[in-house]
Amino acid sequence: MRWGVVQFPGSCDERDALHACGLTGEARLIWHEDRDLGQVDAIVVPGGFSYGDYLRAGAIARFSPAMEAVTEFAAAGGPVLGICNGFQVLCEAGLLPGALLRNEELRFICRQVDLIVEGSVGEFGPLSGTKVADSSEGSETLSIPVKHGEGRYWAPDDVLDEIEAKGQVAYRYAPGQNPNGSVRDIAGVRNEAGNVLGLMPHPEHAVDALTGSMDGLRIFEAVAGARA
């Protein structure tokens, strides 16, 4: 399993992403100016503040040579995981539906949240061995941290109805835990084909028991398992 992690000027979570990917295979950084992704089986677009988040979060990063290559990689069916700023980049690039807006309460938030796995996460699950939350009628949940200022997922109602009907909602915040005002508690979505997934929470920060939860690792394992 060979992972590529895209690094933009202003990325800040690429090291944790490299570490998380490295737990399930080989991982290397791809500089934003590289048009050639090399031999990779999956791509992570990590969190941070690409290009200073100027204009809108993710708006400028989507035009980078590496993102052109990632768009082609995704079109050919390659798995692409966008985390936080990476999710914003994928939405701006049109690889995922919707947009991420300023948090409802305007504050930057950093906390652990429970995510309900919708069972429609495509190549990125469903996950085996996840714990079952009492509150969500047997759904799988993941405990993963969020840290962002612009994470309020939004799309028009007709788009939301469509992506829900097509099973493109991958994760929702558990009841009462929506940290940012995201519409319909959506924390992560995938494309119709299921090979592109974006989420605001940070699975790469939840891969070691030392930090309280290893649930994030399951997402990386699911991709690696599917590609093994």
Binding site: L55, R56, A59, I60, F63, E92, G98, A99, L101, W154, A155, P156
Partner: peptide, 8 residues
């Protein structure tokens, strides 16, 4: 394409 996101 760039200055505005027409969705929002």
């Amino acid at each position: 394409k760039l200055l505005a996101n027409p969705l929002i």
